[in-house]
Write a protein that binds this DNA or RNA. Structure first.
Lengths: 157, 157
DNA sequence: CTTGACGGTCAAGATCCGTGACTATATAGT
DNA sequence: ACTATATAGTCACGGATCTTGACCGTCAAG
């Protein structure tokens, strides 16, 4: 804790802002920075944070672009260009959806699957560090609460 | 929960991605959307999410631009332009720092202070809803854990 | 067979961020 | 005191990113 309490006021003064939004965004930024740095070191330096919003929601069977759009909260045009880039980089393929001739499935290639595995490892390592920080019990509770709040936000749409 | 379990696999299949990054970013997006919508309804429609990164870290006595940059994780150039906009909109003033002639303090005006108060109210209301969802105890634990993880991320820099 | 809704793409404009360079002041070292 | 280095803030440019509106093909309901 390196709060620069340059005046010697008696009250627990200022320091960094700690409302919920600041906390969440700060943690999120730190997480993302670590994630992409670690992935770059593992041979996925051609990816940027931008691509994560699509990659994180892929499934081996393929996912529709609209679903990716809803899951990531980004416009479908953006998802389209991200998929273009990922396709050019060899991470995904577009395949026609057998059940709907309008739709195309975004399917991870081998490289895409490798990326997902690497990301999962990095995230696991990250969670392990956080577990050491809070203790197993508190971290599990934190994660469960986070999950519930997120689910509620998702269904609120 | 509207998981589109089109195959009838026995295992708890896919659904939305739930790794830590997705959870945090989803919650964060939902929070921000609510915050700015509520602020717009309260008469601060001239602000965008972009301005939040500066406004959230203001203090009545004023804060240096560099400090805002570090706290928000954005380049000082961006902070500079955001402060320009906030100044044009009447939310902040630039005053010379008495202790350092290079520096200028970003000081909230009356309107800026009103905005901060409104934001605090909205955030309080948001937290109240989350408290109802999780129960007071679990929410308090969640918030404390979030605080600790964020503090650790901050000191890691 | 018509109508409205949905999946995906194209195109243009605005917004936003990243990088390098520059001035002025402060701080450290000699 | 004098030089060298670091810091605070700004300017300017290019590029990345998001937003908006429209469009075509397909689906689903009536």
């Amino acid at each position: 804790m390196t709060v620069n309490n340059s005046d010697n006021s008696p009250e627990p003064v200022a320091g960094p802002a700690n409302d919920l939004g600041v906390l969440i965004s700060t943690l999120y930024r730190a997480f993302e920075r670590e994630l992409w740095q670690a992935l770059a070191e593992r041979g996925f330096a051609d990816l940027g944070a931008r691509h994560g919003s699509v990659l994180a929601h892929l499934r081996p069977e393929g996912v529709r672009a609209v679903e990716l759009s809803r899951a990531s909260g980004q416009h479908k045009q953006i998802v389209g260009t991200i998929v273009d880039e990922l396709e050019a980089l060899g991470y995904v393929e577009r395949r026609p959806d057998p059940g709907d001739r309008r739709a195309k499935l975004v399917v991870p290639t081998e490289r895409g699957i490798a990326q997902r595995a690497a990301a999962a490892e990095v995230i696991t390592a990250y969670e392990r560090r956080q577990t050491e920080l809070l203790g197993p019990e508190r971290f599990a509770q934190f994660r469960a609460a986070l999950r519930e709040l997120t689910d509620a936000a998702r269904s609120a749409d």
